[in-house]
């Protein structure tokens, strides 16, 4: 288990470094966020090897598009999470990915994911992970489908045979629950990280 090296820097200063294409900024970005990004990417692509590739692609995308990041619209973390998520989802939907994954044993998948989950750290100390289990299953499912699988609302409605209106209300209440569970703690964590 490696020691977490986080650099304390204000988000404003980090953004300035990144937008001036300073490689030090990207190094700090990596140190501060890689475990979260890698976790999300792994959850989507379900393969360590592909997760590493996607991680590289995601950082290159961040490099190329950082000028378009606008602080008034949201936090840097949300923005890079979305870049990583979209890169991973694009990968999963690519023809090449579908072909290689068909040859893989489903059992293996589960093992890979389990081992990855158990290697995560830090957060468990605060018990945040346990909180996830408090989410109602249908809420967790809908957030995961939308957030990690890149489903559209109508795809969810279609695949699970529920009306689109229900999907929308379920999203709303799922996130409301997430907020109730996390926001106080998230604030603490983010303060801790920065």
């Amino acid at each position: 288990m490696s020691i977490r090296r986080k650099t304390v820097i204000s988000e404003e200063n980090l953004v300035a470094l990144l937008q001036s294409k300073d490689e030090r900024g990207f190094s700090i970005l990596y140190d501060n966020y890689s475990s979260a990004l890698y976790g999300v990417i792994s959850k989507i692509v379900r393969s360590e090897e592909i997760a590493s590739d996607v991680m590289q692609d995601a950082f290159v995308k961040i490099w190329k598009n950082i000028e378009s990041y606008n602080r008034t619209k949201g936090t840097l973390f949300t923005w890079i999470l979305n870049v990583a998520r979209n890169t991973a989802i694009d990968k999963v939907r690519s023809q090449e990915f579908i072909q290689t994954q068909q040859n893989q044993d489903i059992e293996n998948f589960v093992n890979v994911i389990d081992s990855q989950q158990s290697s995560s750290f830090d957060i468990d100390a605060i018990g945040l992970k346990k909180l996830v289990t408090k989410l109602r299953p249908e809420h967790q499912q809908i957030v995961d489908l939308l957030y990690f699988q890149g489903y559209t609302q109508s795809e969810v409605a279609e695949e699970y045979g529920i009306p689109l209106g229900t999907v929308k209300t379920r999203i709303k209440s799922a996130i409301t629950h997430l907020r109730e569970l996390f926001v106080g703690i998230a604030f603490l964590i983010l303060k801790f990280f920065w």
């Binding site: 288990m1 490696s2 890689s34 475990s35 979260a36 890698y38 976790g39 999300v40 792994s42 959850k43 991680m55 936090t75 973390f77 949300t78 999470l81 990855q116 989950q117 290697s119 995560s120 750290f121 830090d122 957060i123 945040l128 992970k129 909180l131 996830v132 957030v143 957030y147 996130i175 997430l178 907020r179 996390f182 926001v183 703690i185 998230a186 604030f187 964590i189 983010l190």
Partner: peptide, 14 residues
């Protein structure tokens, strides 16, 4: 922030 916290629950050692 809620989704950031949710993402953080998936932190994985790189």
């Amino acid at each position: 922030e809620a989704l950031e916290a949710y993402a953080l629950t998936h932190e994985t050692e790189v």
